[in-house]
Write a protein that binds this DNA or RNA. Structure first.
Lengths: 194, 194
DNA sequence: GTCTATAGATCGATAGAC
DNA sequence: GTCTATCGATCTATAGAC
């Protein structure tokens, strides 16, 4: 395996971590490969050794949270009852966002990723997920739930970028976010299956 | 004042509208002045006649909603009682977001605007606003409200970018968003002053 | 007020030495 | 695995003709 002496970090993982941080701060289009290389103290060509194109790098950065979302869809599908599924989705998405904060910011906030991740996003199974949550209708009650769910998922970005709220720590922030989601969606503490 | 025959729109207002649409779709960094000029059917230099730099153009696009936020801060300050102020803020921010949807997306979502609007954002009086809402403490109840408020303001972006929810129309969407905010913040329909 | 032309910088990406 | 050097494209911005 030839794991020789590596004087300073310039491996694949280091590139991913550096890119993730810069993407979060300045967006994908606002982050050049030169800036990534500079922050690592290596040359631009060294970055290209690990990733053939910038889009590949973007995909690499987003891979963990994409996988997490797919897994979440599976977990939710295993729940029985509409409220149990809603609550599982709520908790799962909060856990994902807290655990993969940086990637979550990029996925939810960057206007660029849509063009590079359209296929992956479509394959996440969100369409089937919405169906299993009975969120495909257009009656007023359903629309209210859809609006609330959209506000919640998008809104997670707020506290997760506010330094004063991040200072609460992951655990406390998680509780606050779940509580916010339950209020928004009108879910009781211990949901019963319908 | 010499309003001669203008064969096709290439005035200052048309530049602003075109830029606003492209900024919303592809972000500020993802929108070149060439793309704006192309969509208008004019040359790049024609755009530079109206705006000296790209940052000037960004500021021009964001000016209406920035003014709206400043005005909102004034309106909220005139309310008496904490719940009345919270409710006024909630309704005001929803009205602003619905009325200036495109600009709202750019302000809330684009990683670039922070660097160009830092001074303007600081001057919006949000710090004083938070104080007047008694949201400066760090006790659990205050933090819960701060998290909820952050989720709500950031979350408005969700429904306002979802075509299926936008199809509800401004009026219905407005009601849904206000209802969501009241649930999140635990505000009753007709708020009484404390 | 709009144009062509171009300067100067930076971008993504590649080639080839070590 | 990292480097220097470079290509071609694109970007912001300016100069000057009409």
């Amino acid at each position: 395996m030839a794991a020789g002496t590596r004087p300073r970090g310039a491996g694949r993982v280091q590139v991913l971590e550096t890119a993730r941080r810069l993407f979060t701060l300045h967006g994908v289009e606002g982050t050049s490969l030169q800036a990534i290389a500079d922050l690592m103290g290596v040359s631009k060509a060294a970055v290209y050794y690990h990733f053939k194109t910038k889009d590949d790098l973007v995909r690499g950065v987003l891979e963990p949270i994409i996988a997490g979302i797919a897994e979440l869809a599976r977990v939710i599908g295993a729940q029985r009852g509409r409220n149990a599924r809603l609550d599982a989705m709520l908790i799962g998405i909060v856990d994902l966002a807290v655990a993969h904060n940086d990637e979550f910011q990029v996925v939810m906030g960057d206007p660029y990723i849509g063009s590079v991740l359209q296929a992956e996003v479509d394959a996440l199974g969100f369409a089937e997920l919405a169906e299993s949550l009975a969120l495909t209708g257009t009656d007023p009650a359903t629309m209210a739930t859809r609006v609330a769910l959209s506000v919640f998922v998008t809104g997670l970005r707020g506290p997760l970028t506010d330094p004063e709220l991040l200072a609460l720590g992951d655990a406390a922030l998680r509780e606050h976010l779940i509580e916010s989601g339950r209020r928004l969606l009108g879910i009781r503490r211990r949901p019963h299956a319908l």
